[in-house]
C-alpha cells in the first residue's frame, strides 16, 4: 500500500466554515451516473479493474473457517482463468484488493491465504463493529488483537455520539488512539454516514478522521439502514480533495454496503475519476466493500467474452 497518512494537528478552522447543500449534492450525485458510461472493451476493462478494488467481505454471525477459506480462495481467483485469457489479462495478477472479516476470523483468513500462497492483505473490522458502543479500552484492545493475529488493515467504526454532539476534539483523540493501536496496519475509518444526521456532519467527520491519520475513510458498516450512497460519497470525496489540497496527502476512499451490481461498481469508478481524478483509481486509494458484487462482475465478463448470459453453475461460488 501507499505511504501512510501521518495525520495533522487538529485544526477546527478546516471544518468550521464548511457548507454542504444537500439538494445540490443530490442533483450532482444523480447526474454523475447519467453523464459517464463505458461500453464494450472499456466496460470489460473497467470491470476487471473494479475487481482489483474489492475488499471481499464476509461479516456474518455464522462465519466459520470453511466459508472464510472459500472466500479467500475466491479472492485469489476472482474471475475464471479462461475468461481472463480470452481478454489477454491473465498475467496481470488480478485478485481482489483484500479480504475483510470479523476479528475472530482473522486467523482463519491469514492461514487460508498463506496456504493459497498469495499476499492479499487481510482486513479486520474492529472497535465494537458495527455500533461502536463499547468502552474505548476494549475497542483499542480489539484493534491490537486483530493486528496480532495478522490483520494488516483495520476497519474501525467511529463513535457517532461524538459527531452528533459536536465533540470534534474527542473524536480526533479517539481516532488518534485507534491509529496508534494499529501500529503498522492501515487504518480505515468507517463514518457510518447513515447515522450522522446531515451531509455537513459527513464532511466534518471525514475531515477529522483524515486529520487524525486515517489511511482510508469508509462510508458505512453495511449494517446501517442507509448504506453507501452517491450523495454521501460526493461529500466525502470533496473532503478528500480538500485535505489533499491542504496537506498534499492522498487519502483513500471506500464505499461499502449495498453495492451489488456490476453497473453500480462502474458508476462508483467514474464518480471517483470525476471528483478526484484517475490517480485515485488504484487499490491503494480506492476500495469497494462488497460480498456479492464479484459474482455479478464475473457474469458480465462472461457475457462480454462469450456473448451469452451465464447460468448460475457456470461460475464458481465464493
Amino acid at each position: 500500500m501507499s505511504a501512510r497518512n501521518l495525520g495533522t494537528e487538529l485544526d477546527l478552522s478546516w471544518i468550521s466554515k464548511i457548507q454542504v447543500n444537500q439538494p445540490a449534492v443530490l442533483r450532482r450525485a444523480q447526474q454523475i451516473q447519467a453523464r459517464r458510461t463505458v461500453k464494450k472493451e472499456w466496460q470489460a476493462a473497467w470491470l476487471l479493474k473494479a475487481v482489483t478494488f474489492i475488499d471481499l467481505t464476509t461479516l456474518s454471525g455464522d462465519d466459520t473457517s470453511s466459508n472464510v477459506q472459500r472466500l479467500c480462495y475466491k479472492a485469489k481467483y476472482p474471475i475464471r482463468e479462461d475468461l481472463l485469457k480470452a481478454l489477454n489479462v491473465h498475467d496481470k495478477g488480478i485478485t481482489t484488493a483484500a479480504v475483510c472479516v470479523y476479528p475472530a476470523r482473522v486467523c482463519d483468513a491469514v492461514k487460508a491465504l498463506k496456504a493459497a500462497g498469495c499476499a492479499i492483505p487481510v482486513a479486520s473490522v474492529a472497535t465494537g463493529f458495527p455500533a461502536g458502543q463499547t468502552h474505548l479500552k476494549t475497542r483499542l484492545e480489539e484493534i491490537r488483537l486483530a493486528v496480532e493475529d495478522g490483520a494488516t488493515e483495520i476497519d474501525v467504526v467511529i463513535n457517532r455520539a461524538l459527531v452528533l454532539t459536536g465533540q470534534w476534539e474527542a473524536l480526533y483523540d479517539e481516532i488518534r488512539q485507534f491509529r496508534k493501536a494499529c501500529g503498522a496496519a492501515h487504518l480505515k475509518t468507517i463514518l457510518a454516514t447513515g447515522e450522522l444526521g446531515s451531509l455537513t456532519n459527513v464532511y466534518k467527520a471525514s475531515m477529522i478522521a483524515m486529520m487524525a491519520g486515517s489511511d482510508f475513510i469508509k462510508t458505512s458498516t453495511g449494517k446501517e439502514t442507509v448504506n453507501a450512497t452517491f450523495p454521501v460519497a460526493v461529500v466525502m470525496l470533496r473532503a478528500i480533495r480538500d485535505f489533499f489540497w491542504k496537506t498534499g496527502n492522498k487519502i483513500g476512499f471506500k464505499p461499502a454496503g449495498g453495492i451489488r451490481s456490476a453497473k453500480e461498481s462502474l458508476a462508483w469508478l467514474s464518480l471517483v475519476k470525476e471528483e478526484l481524478g484517475a490517480e485515485w483509481l488504484t487499490p491503494a486509494l480506492f476500495r469497494i466493500g462488497a460480498s456479492t458484487l464479484l459474482s455479478d462482475i464475473e457474469r458480465q465478463i462472461y457475457h462480454h467474452v462469450t456473448g451469452r448470459y451465464a447460468a448460475y453453475h457456470d461460475l464458481p461460488m465464493s
Binding site: V38, K39, A45, L48
Partner: peptide, 18 residues
C-alpha cells in the same frame, strides 16, 4: 486505433459510447 481491453485496464480512459 481501438485500444485493447488490456490497455484500457491500465489507462482507465473513457471510450466512445455511440
Amino acid at each position: 486505433a481501438q485500444p485493447s481491453t488490456r490497455e484500457i485496464f491500465t489507462t482507465l480512459e473513457y471510450g466512445p459510447v455511440p
